[in-house]
Design a protein around this nucleic acid. Sequence first.
DNA 1: AAGACTCTCAACCGCATAGAC
DNA 2: AGTCTATGCGGTTGAGAGTCT
Length: 240
Amino acid sequence: MSWAMMGEQFGWGVIEEEGWRKGPWTAEEDRLLIEYVRLHGEGRWNSVARLAGLKRNGKSCRLRWVNYLRPDLKRGQITPHEESIILELHARWGNRWSTIARSLPGRTDNEIKNYWRTHFKKKAKLSPENSDQAKARTLKRQHFQQQLLQQKQQQQYLQLNESDMKRMMSLLEETEPKAQYMPQLRQEMGAATSCPNMVEEQSLFYPMGNDNETSNEDVVWDGLWNLDDYQWKLWCSKPS
DNA sequence: AAGACTCTCAACCGCATAGAC
DNA sequence: AGTCTATGCGGTTGAGAGTCT
């Protein structure tokens, strides 16, 4: 039995001077936190200790929720598509992990930060050649995806209409029913209001000229940008 | 088999910022 | 305007698991 398991079993944990618990979370603490969020919603983390009976400070509760308990978290390995997005956005924004995480639904800044450290930072340090190869692979993949998307775009861009968007939505629903993909798309489908973040990200691959004008099409392409590999293949293979 | 080493990731820390008062 | 508090972010640490020698 590991120390963590024993700690969980016997309710161990470091108690700070102020009385806050530290260290690994127990299943019971998780349960209390989930229940708290269910009842009170996210935020006001400093109230958790008082309202949920947790001996954890607000920061610890927030972190546990954001990085581990949130229901919309995507488990499992970072996909090649996500990896290419991380590379691209890191090249653009540097270590702004939370900003990068916003482009990867279900992934946390912590997760991306860890992924970057283990997969890229070290490689770059130890072997520039390998890193170059990795970058070349990534660029190749991005180029391929870009070509596909541009083909699709050429065929469809001018004809994008409500049915396209409905198709997009149904694809997302059937491939990832639980995920909160593209909340802005969900909100703005009918409204055709602006979505500034989207335009910025889209311009990575598709400089469209007029950045001030964001339409439904923009939102849809942002959705494509956020597709994972499986969804991507489905999107490319589906007849329009 | 066992110790050394590496990888992964949850969690903490310190700092910055926003908002309330 | 200044102070306090809550929250968010990026850097770092450390434990556990896996792999190598």
